[in-house]
Design a protein around this nucleic acid. Structure first.
Length: 289
DNA sequence: CTTTTCTCCTGTATGC
DNA sequence: TGCATACAGGAGAAAA
C-alpha cells in the first residue's frame, strides 16, 4: 500500500520522466477514476490537454502535477494512488494494462503516462493552487513530517487534545499526513507505545517520540525505495519488495519481536489489523481499541 | 464540534 | 473442484 515513501518515489519518477513535457492528449476510461472531479472526466481531459507539466509535488500521500496552460495560467492535476494505484511510463504501443484507467500522450511522441489501478480507490481531479502552492481541494490535509512547514509542536498539541487512540491520530491525515497502517505500526513499535493508548493520556515527550519515529522509519523506507527505482516503471507498489524485510511489527504476527523476542501479536483495529509487541508495547489503559 | 463507523473495489488466500 | 467468505485499506461521507 502506498504511503508517503512510496508516493515520494513515484513523485521522483514523474519529476524525471514527465516534468517539462507538454500533454497532447488525455484518455480516461470510465467515470470512476475522475469521480472527485466534479465537472466530469471529459472536462478534466479537455483542461489537461495542451498544458505543459512544469512540476511534480507531493503532500503526504497526495501528489500533483503543476500544469501551465498556453496563457501561462497554472492549475494542478491532483492524484491519489489509493491502495493499488500505479503511475507507469510506457511506450505508446505497449498493450493496455488490465486495470488501465487513464492515459496521457505527449507532444514529443515519447512514452505515455498511464494510471493503472486494480482496486480503484485511487483517482485524479483538477484543482487550483492556493497562495502556498497547495491544491485547494486538499487544504484539509496536514503537512507531512518532511515539509518545512511541518509544525512538530502543533501536531503534539493536537494529539494531546484528542480523546482517541493514538494510532487513530497518526492515521488522521488532517493531523499529520503521509502515515498509513504500515508505518504507523512501525513507528509505534519503535516508540514502544501501544496504538490503542489514549492520545490525551500520553505525555508530550512520548507523543513527540512517536512522531519522530514515524518520520525516521518513513525516511529509511524512502532511502531503500529510491534505490529500486526503474526508469521505465514509475511505481512502487507498497512496502512489499524492498522494505518489508525491514519491518519489525507490521505483518509479523507470531514472529519474534526484534527487540525482546516476544511473538508479535495481531489485533483488530478500525476493522483492520494492528501489529505490536505485547511486551514492549503494553496495552495498559487502552480504551476503544 | 468531535469521534466513529460505513462504504467504495477486486485479487488473493483460506475453509468447507 | 467449486463456491463462499475473509482480508487488504485510504479517505470521505454519514452517523453517533
Amino acid at each position: 500500500m502506498p504511503e508517503l515513501p512510496e508516493v515520494e518515489v513515484v513523485r521522483q519518477g514523474l519529476a524525471a520522466h514527465v516534468v517539462g513535457r507538454t500533454v497532447s492528449d488525455v484518455q480516461l476510461t470510465g467515470a470512476r477514476v475522475a469521480r472527485r472531479h466534479a465537472a466530469g472526466p471529459d472536462d478534466l481531459a479537455a483542461r489537461v490537454r495542451h498544458t505543459q507539466v512544469v512540476d511534480a509535488r507531493r503532500r503526504g500521500k497526495y501528489l500533483w502535477l503543476v500544469l501551465a496552460g498556453p496563457a501561462g495560467d497554472r492549475s494542478a492535476l491532483l492524484l491519489h494512488l489509493g491502495m493499488s494505484g500505479q503511475l507507469l511510463v510506457q511506450p505508446a504501443d505497449a498493450p493496455d494494462e488490465r486495470h488501465l484507467h487513464a492515459r496521457f500522450d505527449f507532444a514529443d511522441d515519447g512514452p505515455q503516462l498511464r494510471f493503472v489501478d486494480q482496486r480503484t480507490f485511487g483517482g485524479m481531479a483538477l484543482a487550483e493552487l492556493d497562495a502556498d502552492g497547495i491544491p485547494d481541494s486538499i487544504s484539509h490535509i496536514a503537512p507531512d513530517p518532511f515539509e518545512p512547514v511541518y509544525d512538530r509542536r502543533a501536531v503534539i498539541e493536537r494529539l494531546k487534545a484528542r480523546h482517541s487512540a493514538v494510532k487513530r491520530g497518526l492515521l488522521d491525515q488532517g493531523v499529520v499526513s503521509g502515515v498509513g497502517n504500515i508505518y504507523a505500526d512501525e513507528a509505534l513499535w519503535r516508540a514502544q507505545v501501544h496504538g490503542g493508548r489514549a492520545s490525551d493520556s500520553l505525555t508530550r515527550p512520548v507523543l513527540g517520540r512517536v512522531l519522530d519515529h514515524a518520520r525516521e522509519v518513513m525516511g529509511e523506507a524512502l532511502a531503500q525505495g529510491g534505490t529500486s527505482f526503474d526508469a521505465l516503471y514509475v511505481n512502487v507498489n507498497g512496502a512489499s519488495g524492498y522494505f518489508d524485510r525491514s519491518l519489525a511489527a507490521y505483518g509479523q504476527e507470531g514472529r519474534p519481536c526484534p527487540r525482546c523476542g516476544t511473538p508479535i501479536r495481531r489485533e483488530a483495529f478500525m476493522n483492520r489489523s494492528s501489529f505490536s509487541c505485547p511486551r514492549c508495547q503494553p496495552a495498559t489503559r487502552a480504551p476503544k481499541f
